[in-house]
Design a protein around this nucleic acid. Sequence first.
DNA 1: TCGTCTTACTAAATCGTTTTAGTAAAGTTT
DNA 2: AAACTTTACTAAAACGATTTAGTAAGACGA
Lengths: 358, 358
Amino acid sequence: MPIKNKNKAKESNRDSIDSSLQKNISLKDVAASLKLSPTTVSVVLNYSPLADSIPQETKDRIFEAARNLNYRPNYIARSLRNQRTHTIGVLIPEMSDGYSAAVLSGVEEKLLQEGYFYFVASHHHRAELIEKNTQFLVGRCVEGILAIDTPINQQSFLPIVSISGHDHVKGLTNIVLNHERAAQLAIEHLYTLGHRKIAIIKGQEFSSDTEVRLATMLKAAQEFGISIKDDWVTQLIGDDPSPETGYLATKNLLSRGENFTAVLAFNDISAIGAIRALREKGFDVPRDVSIIGFDDITAAEFHYPALTTIRQPLKKMGSLGAEHLLRTIQENSAETLSLEITVEPDLIVRQSTAEFSK
Amino acid sequence: MPIKNKNKAKESNRDSIDSSLQKNISLKDVAASLKLSPTTVSVVLNYSPLADSIPQETKDRIFEAARNLNYRPNYIARSLRNQRTHTIGVLIPEMSDGYSAAVLSGVEEKLLQEGYFYFVASHHHRAELIEKNTQFLVGRCVEGILAIDTPINQQSFLPIVSISGHDHVKGLTNIVLNHERAAQLAIEHLYTLGHRKIAIIKGQEFSSDTEVRLATMLKAAQEFGISIKDDWVTQLIGDDPSPETGYLATKNLLSRGENFTAVLAFNDISAIGAIRALREKGFDVPRDVSIIGFDDITAAEFHYPALTTIRQPLKKMGSLGAEHLLRTIQENSAETLSLEITVEPDLIVRQSTAEFSK
DNA sequence: TCGTCTTACTAAATCGTTTTAGTAAAGTTT
DNA sequence: AAACTTTACTAAAACGATTTAGTAAGACGA
């Protein structure tokens, strides 16, 4: 007897594997197999309060039939009826820049937890693609939009949460870094090490953090009594997400013949390029010049020299953004005020900065 | 008069912005506004051959009304009716390992081109998550699945394309690197530089390339008359996608007291960790030990020393995979045979390898 | 002038659910 | 024994499109 049971178990297991090869078992099929109406089957399977009057025995039969037939409710039909897709759209500049991926991993974790999926569309910093992709996503009936490092200039009927954005549009929630604090940490670190001549590599115009990053750095410098000459400020060159941008920017900086002792790079990627440019000109990092990156991507720690950097909690920003977006969707609060949620940076001291001795 | 026209243009522009704030214009609404039936409006807007008998004047009215009301067909309703979602599911191990992101960028490019979107689900190398996520994706009515570096052990009624997978399941298409060639390039390079004592860091068990990578390397070495001692083979330690894995593996290797002159790392990430471990023990790369990475991720070029590596055309593998998946979906060919599509590696010589002189 | 063909449409079914509004039978109260 | 409740269901509408199968009116040929 036990053996027979075992066989039976195996068989039903096999059945379910095989049946995963054929599809299209509908509610109607289940209902027909039980000589019940789709209504009854639906309310039971959904644990609807309407099923209160259905006797347990019938419920059991229904559950059993659904399992045996391997019934999976059609998500599309359900979405149509309920007007809920449990899907959100994510706008990113670039899939492969490390930054977006880090944020996305936080987004994904939170969304899957809550039974949501997401569509990603990248725009490569092209305004018309932002517009077009947004339209596509809306066309796909997403319930909200998460914009990562992507400018948003229009109000929408959909809830939007922007990560590292700086636009102030009605109804838009921004997840932003405490930039003042970040700048303070960076400048203070260099100041403490004795640096007074600091160069800054700012981001490209299209990066939404570019402006604040520079402004807060200049302000923090001023507070420490450090004046930063115009000639010590340069900008990333090119628009692909590679260290090349920082490499070219730094070469440009060096060609001006200025003798700064430290560089604040826009991000880790560009800091890596900057180090290479300095090395080519015979400067050792950190002996001759100190460099601070920004973001703390994985590569930062394992670069040589390991990068001192300002860490942004990218993954956390992603999950916070997702969490907030889901909340506004669930509250169905179209009247949401503009909101700003701030996360804190950390100074991570490694080997690319050193005391200035001269 | 021109002025009035201008105003009018502005107003209608404004209307369309405002109307993007309200949603839910259905086919029925458009039809009602024209006193036509939804049928007529549908066939005209879809350029269906059924619209042949509709006079141009009516068509124009319909198009105009659709534009003015900012009508957007409801994708869900359309999907339900047509039984097409134009959505595929992508399984990846990890969002933020650089590898998946590179492949994804190729996938995305191709898919968006063809009007498809994709859902991503990552499984962190956990078998039960692979299973669960696949179920979720199927539940979401995806039309096919793209598995990136993810083991597939079951046939499915959906088309599946696997990138860097090594499973041979009926109906599964594999996009794979020409591993023999890759190994040959790597070994030949080291051989030419005079290296005869080569250590190998193999991947973790969960990486689908681990086995072939090692086997082909050993075979290629043999062909060059190089014998690789068991003690010169070690394995990545830990399961997060950081250089730490290679760092630990290399420390382990060094602790064995063997005196190899070159290291073949499983990938660039781990090569970076390996270099750090060697450096800590006082070995200079490439003067004392040469290192070859694998993949050619962005970081490889800008590492110090820049990594010599075997390039995998990751983005291309992504777009090839997507292309092939779409093709099998469109052909509706459930009878597809197992197929293998091979892409070619390149040897990228940089600064982490040098002639062995002693 | 009848039958056929074309033109310009529309009604209704369908996709697979959920939900509203019943209903028939049995049980309970008064 | 009439009136009301509860039990155990079902029919039909709805979500928003597409598609099949018409239809009514006019044009045309024999």
